[in-house]
Simulated assay, not measured.
Amino acid sequence: MTPSFPAPPAPLDQARLERGLLAPAGPWARVTVVERTGSTNADAAAAAVAEPAAWPDMSVLMTTHQDAGRGRLDRSWEIEPGAGLAISLVLRPTDASGRPLPTQTYSWLTLLAALALAESLGGPEGVTATIKWPNDVLVHEKKVAGILAQLAGTTDGTPPAVVLGCGINVAQELAALPVPTATSLAASGSRRLDTNDVAGAFLTAFAGHYRDFCDRSGDATRAGETGTSLIRNISLWMDTLGRRVRVQLPDGSDLTGEATALAVDGALQVIGSDLAQHDIHAADIVHLRAEGTP
Rank of each mutant, 00 (worst) to 15 (best):
G122R: 03
A161Q: 05
G98W: 10
V144H: 02
L174P: 00
T293M: 05
M238I: 01
A223I: 12
R70I: 00
A171C: 10
N169Q: 11
F213P: 04
D284C: 09
A276E: 13
T204E: 13
L117F: 08
C214K: 02
D239P: 02
G98Y: 09
I231G: 01
A220G: 04
G208T: 15
E78N: 08
A46Q: 14
T158A: 15
G38N: 09
A50Q: 15
R30W: 04
T293I: 09
A201R: 07
E18A: 14
D136P: 04
A186C: 14
C166G: 01
D239H: 05
L109G: 01
A261M: 10
N41D: 03
M62G: 01
D136F: 02
V264T: 14
I79E: 01
D136H: 05
T64D: 03
G26D: 07
V198I: 10
W108C: 02
E291Y: 03
T154P: 05
A114L: 06
K142R: 13
G82H: 00
A48D: 06
E35T: 15
D212S: 15
R16S: 15
L111A: 08
A282G: 11
A283Y: 12
V127F: 02
S188Y: 06
Q248A: 15
L12N: 00
L174A: 15
D74R: 12
D219T: 06
D239A: 05
V264C: 11
L177T: 06
T155F: 13
A68R: 08
G227D: 13
G157T: 13
N135L: 10
R191L: 13
T293E: 07
E291R: 11
Q277D: 15
S217I: 08
L109I: 10
L203A: 09
T240S: 09
R19F: 10
V270T: 11
P24F: 08
